[in-house]
Design a protein around this nucleic acid. Structure first.
Lengths: 337, 337
DNA sequence: AATACAAATGTAACCGGTTTCACGCAAAAA
DNA sequence: TTTTTGCGTGAAACCGGTTACATTTGTATT
């Protein structure tokens, strides 16, 4: 019983496709007898029109793409949830891609979305090509896109001309570091990604700002730069903890890094706050609920997802409006210093 | 510069649409001069064909739908990741929906997917209508779908005729409870969802199986049944902990429930394992990494996502093959008893 | 040189909808 | 009664592709 089409309905009702279409869309007047007859058949045959055909005819799509680098990271899970809730309310449908923070997949996703002629997209670019060759390819593809794009969370220089929504990471990192300084710490470490990534640079800058403000020298030996994985952070943290001259406090630059750090801490039989103080970027829900005393910068990813989708809807409505960059504030949650 | 179409290319190359199509698809022989000329124009204009139009012409879609009840729950995040990785490899594109475990949204998602004439779908039904009126509506819609559906994780009786992949929750709960019994516990509690939900029933049954096996009476006063939220589990756990005659061990039936329990524990100044022993269903990654000593039943959601997508691909290839139900084993991870 | 066959390409129909336009007909206005 | 108006409807074109079929052209066979 292949899918029922508008032609089937028309034939059965003894009218033209056009009339059925009119019934479907209430777009023009239809005699009430005809209308009822057609509606009855539609109901009986459980017909509803193909969105694909419809979009093709209309010339526009109701699909919105979303590309995130790590779909099973709760941060992006929440982002997705926020975006999806607003999409729902606006009859937009989400096409999801997980780039694994990998330029090639990123490119493939972009390409797929382009070829679907999606209405717009929410995009967190993969970081791993921040300075690479691949980047050019992606950039060129995006430029040729002619589709509204809203950047989320990451703000590569090459994408300046797009709307975007970001967190005030520099400020937050400044404040977090400042909190540590004001609590009396002089030797403050940081575990971050390497500085070829935009976000890592921004976060590092915030950290540095605070040190400068309080006349504490920036010391590379307290900086551990790698990637955003638990494993690497764990290695770095272990190394840090085993040093004679180790920091008395540390900031960790994303939730995976925080976890790597905490793991190392635990394996060295050390206690959070007791032996070394930490403020992490992004909450770790379980730890927070369980009352582990883990301090963190609280960034509201659901909010970001919602706002991003709203910005996209706005952009779709006003294609020529001025480029908009939104910066969301975060809150520093101190559980135990 | 609206989108370039095949007609534009054809006109510019001085050939017919058909020829351009042939170049695009290598579907028939084209003179090498013509081919090169066309290809050059395609490159120059950055043209690539509309997937929407293509699918309409082909009569099939390359979209696969996926509906999950809680997109920001890491369990479903991993499910999504697994599914998405297999989809990628097979040139399938994912349309994502978050039902919020709510029948109405569930219905809307199903409807949208139907209207997109998706190729197939992965589906974790919302639980909240397990016995309700809404259920009938959803069931009827699904029946009329005529699209391959693979159930994931939840197995409502009404959907028997679909392929599905599930965890051996009854067995796992049995084993977990058994572990507690063998460790000497007689008073074993359970925090679960109410038994009008299929999964809750299955889990409860596993718990009960173990008690029976070891001749321990099933006692309702040790059973706390509510929903799968942290908040409710927290209330239940608090109540439990404040009772004179409280269990010495407890099984918690999903990750939210585990967190609610752990929160209550912490607020009552009690220690996991020390004061009351617990085995939870599903890992809580942060706790595990941090070495909290939280015991759990490890269900591999990534694996489930992958397998589900593979089953869907299989089903799409062999529409008349026998219905397939796959049950995945889980592993019990004991950190501290 | 005539015939056969393959390669290259165009024409037109089709996928499942929407929409413009024109026409017939009935009711309202002149 | 004639003219105007407008409602209800169908035919046909269109959205952007694919493909069956027909036609033209060039090359190999006899």
């Amino acid at each position: 019983m292949g899918n029922v089409t508008i032609t089937d309905i028309a034939r059965e009702a003894g009218v033209s496709k056009a009339t059925v279409s009119r019934v479907l869309n209430r777009s023009a007047s239809v005699d009430s007898n005809t209308r009822e007859r057609v509606e009855e058949i539609i109901r009986r045959k459980k017909y509803s029109p193909s969105t694909v055909a419809r979009n093709l005819a209309y010339g526009i799509s109701s699909i919105v793409g979303i590309i995130v680098p790590e779909i099973d990271n709760p941060f992006f899970g929440e982002l997705l949830r926020g975006a999806s809730s607003i999409a729902d309310k606006n009859d937009l449908t989400l096409m999801c891609f997980n780039s694994d923070d990998n330029a090639e997949k990123d490119y493939k996703a972009l390409k797929t979305l382009k070829d679907y002629r999606v209405r717009g997209m929410l995009y967190t670019p993969a970081t791993d090509y921040d300075t690479s060759e691949q980047r050019k390819t992606v950039t060129k593809l995006i430029e040729s896109l002619d589709i509204p794009v809203i950047l989320m969370d990451r703000e590569p220089a090459a994408f300046e001309r797009y709307d975007g929504i970001f967190f005030e990471d520099r400020k937050s990192m400044y404040e977090a570091t400042e909190k540590l300084i004001l609590a009396g710490h002089k030797k403050i470490g940081i575990i971050n990604a390497t500085l070829d990534r935009g976000l890592a640079r921004i976060r590092q800058a915030g950290y540095r700002d605070a040190l400068e403000k309080y006349d504490i020298p920036y010391d590379e030996k307290y900086c551990y730069l790698g990637d955003y994985s638990v494993a690497q952070a764990y290695r770095h943290a272990s190394e840090m903890l085993e040093k004679e001259d180790r920091p008395t406090a540390v900031v960790t630059c994303n939730n995976n890094i925080s976890m790597g750090f905490l793991k190392a801490l635990q394996e060295h039989d050390m206690k959070i706050a007791g032996d070394i103080v930490c403020i992490g970027l992004d909450k770790i829900e379980a730890l927070d609920i369980v009352g582990s005393g883990f301090n963190y910068i609280r960034r509201d990813a659901i909010e970001m997802g919602k706002k991003a989708m709203e910005m996209l809807i706005h952009r779709m409505a006003f294609p020529t409006a001025a480029v908009q960059k939104v910066y969301l504030d975060s809150e520093i949650v101190i559980r135990k210093l």
